[in-house]
Design a protein around this nucleic acid. Sequence first.
DNA 1: AACTCGGGGCA
DNA 2: TGCCCAGAGTT
Length: 218
Amino acid sequence: MMSKKQTIEALDLIAEMFPDAECELTHSNPFELLIAVVLSAQCTDALVNKVTPGLFAKYKKPEDYIAVPLEELEQDIRSIGLFRSKAKNIKKLSQALLEQHNGEVPKTREELVKLAGVGRKTANVVTSVAFGVPAIAVDTHVERVSKRLGICRWKDSVKEVEETLMKKIPKERWSDAHHQFIFFGRYHCKAQSPQCDTCPLLDRCREGQKRMKAREGK
DNA sequence: AACTCGGGGCA
DNA sequence: TGCCCAGAGTT
């Protein structure tokens, strides 16, 4: 397991690789971000960004999502997959914003996770990106990278990964680290092709060392 | 903890 | 054409 010091050193190297890492979901206000992150569950940000410009031109406020028939909203987001449940969630979520939050996006994780289609990851992205609250949203990239590097244990749950990262990374770096890990996982340490050969973290990476030894053994 | 939902992108 | 992508909700 990486110590706190080792974790920060690894993070520094990743930050050098992706100094401009930031949220890639197209949005221009907290409500658009919330919708975009809900849509991004189980699909890529690039795919979400294909539908959101048209979607946000048509739907500006929670009322707009409520006004339209479910089938119409389903068709508007059909290309991203899982569109039936996502359309239902967005209508429910819009209703809740109107009835319980004056049509505004709530600013706390506790309130956000009560919304339909909003889980731990989505809530953390919204609070950190829209409201500047320090947070580490653990998606599959963050989880995979943290486990490969040895920052946390392979068997850790998403919640345990998040708690470990918060312990080992200074709070003022949580939000930047979150995006840097995501970029590292998405563009370099990919699920099927980690690109260990060109990785600056190879000598300090648990999984990378294991892979190199396995290759030499052949 | 395991299962389900789903179309797009790429080999 | 079949594998890979990548969270929330339910049981």
